[in-house]
Write a protein that binds this DNA or RNA. Structure first.
Length: 294
DNA sequence: CACTTGACCTGTCCGC
DNA sequence: TGCGGACAGGTCAAGT
């Protein structure tokens, strides 16, 4: 699921609910979902108050008033859903736009707050995780040391974007976009959408993509990520926001999950699905050609 | 170092 | 209906 727009949507939602909440208790039922959960929960978590919710790349950081922070990666199927005391969000049966009662069979970690509200970390595939770290050490974890600038970071120039991509000049442009050490926040959905927007064949070698097209690509990435945040992100299967609601960006997607449909720029030409960089990849064969064309 | 592939998991869908 | 395989939003480690 979650690429930058989905994680950012969760961050915005949690920011409405969590600051000021005090942890009353926590529990988890799968050790890898909270690999360094403190044995002495009372000492490290109970009583801690939430200060803020931040995001870096696809990772959320919940800062506590104890000089510790919870860092959370949703990976493919993670969800972070807040429910207040009366469970008025999503109580009862799931609807088309919202998940149902929690906890459910995918719930891996639960945080109880002193006012009776709860935060659920659900993760069907168990790839995601929650960790508790001293706030000062958060920037020093391997992922943050290696990760590139956020795709939406306004300080990154076209030239810096192109230069960072050239570190992977012999791999496909799609593989380079998915490499978080090059630029952070893009995943499979927004890579395909951005490459379509910029009219670049995803399998083209980075070193063969003209600079002009790379500039267009960077613009496309940022435009698409911003629109995706505005529309609440993309729900392909599992993704929901902090209230358990699905995102609507895929209604506006041009190629992702649209194989067999007409390209909107080329009526009569069907979107195809293939594999690039080991991932399912959606292409308009007319917009995106596998050779150097300009 | 740059690059690719398989592993980590559960669940669903599709062909036989 | 059952069964095997492919596939699903993301990283990692280990291989070349």
């Amino acid at each position: 699921m979650p690429e930058l727009p989905e994680v950012e949507t969760v961050r915005i939602g949690l920011s409405q609910f969590l600051p000021g909440k005090r942890v009353k208790d926590t529990a988890h039922n799968w050790d890898k979902s909270f690999p360094n959960a403190p044995k002495d929960v009372q000492a490290y978590l109970v009583g801690a108050k939430i200060l803020s919710i931040k995001r870096r790349a696809k990772v959320l950081i919940i800062e506590l008033d104890t000089k510790y922070s919870l860092i959370i990666h949703l990976k493919m199927t993670g969800q972070l859903v807040y429910r207040d005391k009366t469970h008025r969000f999503g109580a009862g049966h799931p609807t088309d736009s919202m998940i149902g009662a929690l906890p459910d069979r995918t719930t891996r970690v639960v945080f109880d707050f002193t006012d009776g509200s709860q935060l659920f970390f659900n993760d069907q595939r168990k790839f995601g995780w929650v960790r508790l770290l001293p706030t000062a050490e958060v920037p020093n974890i391997d992922f943050f040391k290696k990760v590139g600038p956020d795709a939406l970071d306004s300080g990154t120039s076209n030239m810096e974007f192109r230069n960072r991509l050239q570190r992977r000049k012999n791999s496909s442009i799609k593989a380079a976009l998915l490499d978080q050490t090059v630029i952070a926040g893009i995943g499979n959905i927004y890579a395909d959408e951005s490459l379509w927007q910029a009219k670049i064949y995803p399998g083209m070698r980075v070193g063969d993509v003209p600079a002009r097209k790379l500039n267009n690509l960077f613009t496309a990435i940022r435009d698409i990520l911003r629109i995706a945040i505005k529309t609440g992100g993309s729900t392909d299967r599992n993704y929901v926001d902090a209230e358990g609601k699905k995102g609507s960006y895929l209604k506006f997607a041009k190629v992702f999950r649209r194989e067999g449909q007409d390209c909107i720029r080329h009526p009569g030409t069907k979107i195809i699905k293939t594999k690039v960089a080991g991932r399912g990849t959606h292409i308009c064969p007319k917009c995106q050609r596998p050779f150097i064309d300009m």
